[in-house]
Computed example of a mutant assay.
Amino acid sequence: MELGRLGVWYSTDKLDGPGLMALARRVEGLGYGTLWYPESRGYESFSLAAHLLASTTRLRVGSSIANIYARDAFTARRGLATLNALHCGRFILGLGVSHIPMVEGVRGHRYDKPVPAMRTYLDGIQADTQEDWPVLLAALGPKMLELAAKRSHGAVPYNVTPEHTAQAAAILGPGKVLAVEQKVCVETDKSKARALGRAELARYMTLPNYVNNWLRLGFTEEELKDGGNDRFIDAMVLSGDAATVKAGLQRHFAAGATHLAIQPVHAQGDVAARDAMLAALADL
């Protein structure tokens, strides 16, 4: 699974069709290896992947993540096979268990225990075939990371620190993909960067999967109150000039990341700022 050294993670629900095409072509043109996107309340994951793949010629496209409660395992397997057959093997299926509000509140399903639910889903994808499917798991805790090591090509952690990257690399072991997402804001005004960071992180602060992982990483409940204190925000959103941000990104590689997906954090609709950040960091 060749992802390239650097990729881009972006909240694609913010964009319309032409905007998505422009983003994908911009990412490809700057030399990034992979474009990652989520599945939340907007675009359906596999349909969106088809649009992004059709908009580019070399760029790999990865779901980060496709929600296992959004489609059964057989459908995911056929979607994975179809996209790769039609687009020269450029699609990577990142799978995740999502979060209780998204699964029970939005989709109306029952949220099962994460690791057994993912194991059963992988059984369905991998059943009756020797195909080496390009699958990664959204893994934060040690048990899901262990499952990723045994049953997939690796992991796509989100909202993590270099300390988590080191732990994940140790659990995954050699030969596995560790594609880490990291938010960035190329902005030297620290107060402005932190305000943008808090706005971006707000939707994650009430989700137990992330909160529990932050507590495991050593942040305290006090530090996570009221949108997060400065130490927490600075860890989640690397900010400063381009050289400072690059130095922070390098810490993930030093900790064992095999691929880094940078997520530009900017004011709503400020595509120019997004593209400027991507250009400034493309030569890491």
Score class of each variant (00 low, 15 high):
239 S>M: 06
144 M>P: 04
82 T>I: 07
77 R>G: 11
176 K>Q: 05
183 K>P: 02
135 V>Q: 01
150 K>V: 09
83 L>T: 00
159 N>P: 02
174 P>K: 09
178 L>E: 02
216 R>P: 07
68 I>V: 15
283 D>T: 15
96 G>C: 10
125 I>Y: 06
179 A>S: 15
18 P>W: 08
194 R>Q: 10
194 R>M: 07
112 D>F: 14
229 N>G: 14
166 A>W: 12
254 A>C: 10
224 L>M: 08
169 A>V: 03
177 V>W: 04
167 Q>A: 06
186 V>E: 05
96 G>Y: 01
132 D>V: 15
268 Q>I: 10
144 M>D: 03
22 A>L: 11
31 G>W: 08
280 A>Y: 02
133 W>G: 01
183 K>W: 06
20 L>Y: 05
84 N>A: 06
236 M>E: 05
47 S>L: 14
171 I>W: 02
37 Y>M: 05
216 R>M: 13
157 P>G: 05
139 A>M: 03
274 R>H: 10
84 N>L: 09
36 W>Y: 12
138 A>H: 00
33 G>E: 03
223 E>I: 01
134 P>D: 02
81 A>I: 07
83 L>V: 08
24 A>L: 05
262 I>A: 03
33 G>M: 07
272 A>S: 15
266 H>P: 00
44 E>M: 07
36 W>A: 13
97 V>E: 01
139 A>K: 03
115 V>E: 05
5 R>M: 15
47 S>R: 09
213 N>A: 11
204 Y>G: 01
117 A>H: 11
34 T>Y: 03
156 V>L: 15
24 A>G: 04
107 R>L: 15
114 P>C: 11
85 A>V: 04
260 L>K: 02
89 G>Q: 05
278 L>G: 03
147 L>F: 13
18 P>Q: 02
27 V>Y: 05
160 V>P: 00
106 V>L: 13
64 S>A: 15
48 L>M: 10
66 A>E: 02
151 R>E: 11
205 M>S: 14
21 M>S: 13
236 M>C: 11
116 P>V: 12
116 P>E: 06
244 T>S: 12
276 A>E: 10
257 A>Q: 10
119 R>M: 13
133 W>H: 13
183 K>S: 08
42 G>M: 12
75 T>L: 15
224 L>N: 08
133 W>T: 03
15 L>D: 09
232 F>A: 14
215 L>M: 07
223 E>G: 12
271 V>I: 15
46 F>R: 11
217 L>H: 06
255 A>M: 09
127 A>K: 13
183 K>F: 08
23 L>D: 03
265 V>D: 01
143 K>D: 14
156 V>C: 10
180 V>S: 04
224 L>F: 07
152 S>V: 05
63 S>K: 02
9 W>E: 01
39 E>V: 04
131 E>V: 15
192 K>L: 14
198 R>H: 04
127 A>W: 07
133 W>F: 14
66 A>S: 11
156 V>D: 00
194 R>D: 00
61 V>L: 06
83 L>I: 03
83 L>M: 08
97 V>R: 11
264 P>F: 06
5 R>T: 12
170 A>W: 01
89 G>P: 01
73 A>T: 06
267 A>L: 15
118 M>H: 13
144 M>R: 01
246 K>F: 04
163 E>L: 11
24 A>Q: 05
219 F>C: 09
96 G>M: 11
172 L>H: 04
241 D>C: 07
183 K>N: 07
204 Y>N: 02
138 A>W: 00
109 H>G: 06
141 G>K: 10
264 P>Q: 10
7 G>D: 08
